[in-house]
């Protein structure tokens, strides 16, 4: 069973390097970025059951980390990757520690993350440090040494590396003791706590891990589009997309978010050829989400699981 999966994976992963069509490369890049962000959400939301409605907090933190390191302190943008890993995890740890200590879970956790995202949006929109609503332009300086790629295939390669990293983290969660503790908390908090699982610490670490990885996506965004602003960084749409990718593919599974991202981006591309308005594709996403929750609570990957069983 593993061999065909690896072959399919390799074709999907390496195929775009052979492509010359810009639109196909772009499609592949956006899909891989989406799969990566969905996988990051999945680490907290799927494996840990921490249904976040504000995951863009970490994405935006990473994007601003990259922009500020370069424009204020003149550092090389590659340094933004370790820096964003740190800032993203710290924000995750802080929000996690506050929320889980207060005993927030389920819908309440979802709402508090939404509120934190709004706090971040308002702050980045108001502070001089982040240049307020103007956003931050990153000076143009194409070159691999400067983490700016003229060729989207290079961006794709970086995104793919991130996706591999996040998927490795998900696969690790599936096997490691830490993942087992997390799953125990997700399935039955009281029972897990009675067995000696440290609730606050376990969940906080999961959110910090997810936050650090998500922040890498923000760095890649900043280096690709060379501009960050409060709405791009902390708008609710990105949080929802991350959740949709994971939920539709299959939350709490290793391959679900990748499948989810492929399905959503095919829907987006096909629907754009029918009706090309900004809301049409997201509307279909919402419909797919409702269908999935109703019929396939384990996500699209559940079809595969059921077929194998």
């Amino acid at each position: 069973m593993k061999a065909p999966l690896i072959v399919v994976g390799l074709v999907l992963a390496l195929g775009p390097f052979a492509l010359t069509s810009q639109s196909l490369v772009n499609f592949a890049m956006l899909t891989v970025v989406s799969a990566f962000l969905g996988q990051c959400w999945n680490i907290a939301g799927g494996f840990g059951g921490l249904t976040s409605f504000g995951h863009t907090i970490f994405f935006g933190t990473g994007a601003y980390t990259a922009a500020i390191l370069q424009t204020r302190w003149g550092l090389n943008p590659w340094l933004a990757l370790p820096a964003a890993l740190v800032t993203g995890s710290l924000v995750g740890a802080a929000i996690g520690a506050a929320a889980f200590r207060a005993g927030l879970r389920g819908s309440y956790f979802a709402l508090v993350t939404l509120a934190f995202a709004e706090v971040f949006r308002v702050l980045s929109n108001s502070l001089d440090f982040t240049r307020g609503g103007l956003g931050i332009n990153i000076p143009l300086g194409m070159g691999a040494g400067n983490f700016q790629f003229a060729d989207r295939r290079s961006t794709y390669a970086v995104a793919l590396a991130f996706l591999v990293l996040a998927t490795a983290a998900a696969a690790w969660l599936k096997r490691a003791r830490f993942g087992a503790r997390l799953a125990a908390l997700r399935e039955n908090e009281d029972a897990a706590a009675a067995l000696g699982v440290n609730l606050v610490r376990t969940k906080t670490i999961a959110l910090a891990l997810s936050g650090g990885l998500t922040a890498l996506g923000g760095v890649l965004y900043a280096q690709t589009y060379l501009y960050v602003d409060p709405a791009i960084s902390f708008g609710v749409e990105r949080s929802v997309e991350m959740l949709l990718v994971a939920m539709i593919g299959g939350a709490g599974t290793v391959w679900g978010p990748i499948l989810g991202a492929i399905v959503l981006h095919i829907i987006a591309d096909v629907s754009r050829s029918w009706i090309d308005t900004p809301g049409f594709a997201p509307m279909l996403y919402g419909v797919v989400l409702l269908v999935i929750i109703g019929l396939l609570p384990r996500g699209i990957i559940g079809i595969w699981e059921r077929w194998r069983a």
Binding site: V240, M283, L289, L290
Partner: peptide, 14 residues
């Protein structure tokens, strides 16, 4: 929670 989120996403985008 996710069902009501799905309804919100559909309505906003319709």
């Amino acid at each position: 929670l996710l069902a009501t989120l799905g309804v919100a996403v559909v309505l906003d985008n319709v």
